[in-house]
């Protein structure tokens, strides 16, 4: 049997981490774009639009991400396409992230005082202009900490894509474990790598939040 040094293990895990990072970025950015569309639907004046966004969000927040991955993987296959794991993973994670980001941002928009809507309306602005020039610039400030915080959920969410066969950090952990028979060390290292990715984001989210609260109190 070949002996694996810690360094061998770590090198293999770190190589796979690139895919965790790439998938996280794609999911977060794609989810942000779809989430923005959801946000506009969710606060639209049209009842049907609000209902669509509401049910979308409830569906994606009310079912396991793992099931969403399975359905993307096998469901897309029904259209006769041979779905590669990365595609199913990307699609599912984007749609899932969008639901959470849309809901987070809705909270931020709703936290803006009603007077801001009224004042801008009384100046003759249309709904999109109100959003663009008055509401979003203010909502974006308070949206930063929870949005950064959610990016941690996205990174952790990518771990599930190993189950449909996408080779990223978690999958690499399993593969390396099967080769080395050192689950304690390997999964310990995998956990530490995730921690190294997530913890700085968690911490900055907390710090940003605290800063925002202080700024708020000084107003």
């Amino acid at each position: 049997m070949i002996e694996f040094t810690i360094w061998d293990i770590l090198r293999n895990l770190l190589l796979a981490t690139r895919w965790t990072i790439a998938l996280s970025l794609v999911s977060f950015i794609g989810g942000g774009l779809v989430g923005l569309a959801l946000l506009f639907l969710r606060i639209s004046r049209r009842k049907w639009a609000r209902a669509v966004a509401k049910y979308y969000i409830e569906l994606f927040q009310g079912t396991p991400l793992l099931m969403q991955l399975f359905i993307a993987f096998f469901g897309l296959g029904l259209f006769g396409i041979d779905v590669p794991a990365w595609l199913a993973a990307g699609v599912a994670l984007i749609l899932w992230s969008a639901a959470f980001l849309g809901e987070i941002w809705r909270g931020c928009v709703e936290a803006i005082a009603k007077g801001q809507w009224e004042a801008s309306a009384s100046l003759g602005m249309g709904r999109l202009q109100q959003m663009r020039y008055v509401i979003l610039p203010q909502a974006m400030r308070i949206a930063v900490p929870p949005t950064v915080g959610f990016s941690v959920q996205v990174i952790k969410g990518t771990a599930l894509t190993s189950i449909i066969g996408f080779v990223e950090l978690s999958k690499a952990g399993t593969v390396v474990t099967n080769a080395t028979f050192q689950p304690f060390t390997v999964y310990g290292l995998v956990a530490l790598i995730y921690f190294a990715l997530c913890w700085p984001l968690s911490k900055s989210s907390q710090i940003l939040e605290r800063k925002l609260n202080v700024a708020h109190r000084n107003h």
């Binding site: 599930l160 189950i163 999964y187």
Partner: peptide, 23 residues
């Protein structure tokens, strides 16, 4: 708290099920 909140549940599960037996 920080360790758990910043790692995936799947890895926590694997660590407990596959890793702890070596302890």
């Amino acid at each position: 708290v920080e360790l758990i909140r910043n790692t995936p549940f799947l890895i926590q599960l694997f660590f407990i099920f596959f890793g702890l037996p070596s302890l």
